[in-house]
Simulated scan of single mutants.
Amino acid sequence: MISNMPHIPGTAGQKLARGVGRLLRMMDHAILTEFTPIRGLRVDVISLAPGGDIWIVECKSSRTDFSCDRKWHGYLEWCDRYFWAVDSAFPQELLPVEHGLILADAHGAEILRMPPETRLAGARRSRITRSFARAAAIRLQAGLDPQAFSGAVF
């Protein structure tokens, strides 16, 4: 049985992802955290909107966190909309203005800037949607039967 106890994650990035997840669920999106669209890339938050749109949100907890990230450019080709999520203390002027901006904390979030839509090609959308569904199903089953998944990577 999955617990209904509230869980506040430990790291700053996990707290941002939790708040972003709450916002996106209120918008009727399905959400996964720490999702790998292809080998070598792991996005903080990916969501599937009711109409099938794919959003990726990269959570940045500090100037250093942003400056050290060399992979985020690779995420752009895997979504229809790309966002940065930061807390109120983050220096927002560091972030590229052509992407979306979400202000978040562990309890919620709000969209400050909606990015332009860049539609995925049909084959890529199909691939990422299938990968999303598979990861979600495996994670659900692992939560229901952890012993069956001991040592598994997903």
Rank of each mutant, 00 (worst) to 15 (best):
I2N: 05
I2W: 04
I2S: 05
N4L: 15
N4Y: 14
M5P: 04
P6N: 06
P6G: 12
H7V: 03
G10V: 14
T11A: 00
T11V: 05
Q14R: 15
Q14E: 15
L16Q: 05
V20N: 00
G21M: 02
L23F: 14
L24S: 15
R25I: 05
D28T: 01
D28V: 10
E34W: 03
F35T: 07
T36Y: 09
P37I: 04
P37H: 07
I38D: 02
I38L: 11
I38R: 05
G40D: 02
G40M: 00
L41F: 06
R42E: 14
R42T: 11
I46C: 03
S47E: 08
L48I: 00
L48D: 03
L48T: 05
G51K: 04
G51H: 08
G52V: 05
D53T: 10
I54H: 00
I54F: 04
E58L: 01
E58Y: 02
E58I: 00
C59H: 06
K60Y: 02
K60H: 12
S62K: 03
R63E: 13
T64G: 07
F66A: 09
C68W: 14
C68D: 15
C68V: 15
D69T: 13
D69Y: 10
D69M: 11
W72Q: 05
H73E: 06
G74H: 06
E77S: 13
E77F: 02
E77W: 08
C79A: 07
R81W: 04
F83Q: 04
F83V: 07
W84S: 03
A85K: 05
A85I: 04
V86N: 04
F90W: 00
F90Y: 02
E93H: 11
E93P: 04
L95E: 09
L101P: 01
L101I: 10
L101V: 13
L103N: 03
A106I: 00
G108S: 05
A109E: 10
E110T: 06
I111D: 10
L112K: 12
R113M: 11
M114A: 11
P115N: 01
T118C: 02
R119H: 01
R119P: 13
R119K: 10
L120P: 01
G122W: 14
A123R: 12
R125W: 10
R127T: 09
I128M: 09
I128S: 01
I128Q: 00
T129D: 09
T129V: 14
T129E: 12
T129Y: 08
R130W: 15
A133Y: 12
A133H: 12
R134Y: 12
A136I: 00
A137S: 11
A137H: 07
I138N: 09
Q141P: 02
Q141M: 13
Q141S: 12
L144W: 11
D145P: 09
P146W: 07
P146V: 13
P146R: 07
Q147E: 15
Q147T: 08
Q147Y: 11
Q147D: 09
A148W: 09
A148L: 11
F149S: 10
F149D: 08
S150R: 14
A152G: 10
V153D: 11
F154D: 11
F154E: 04
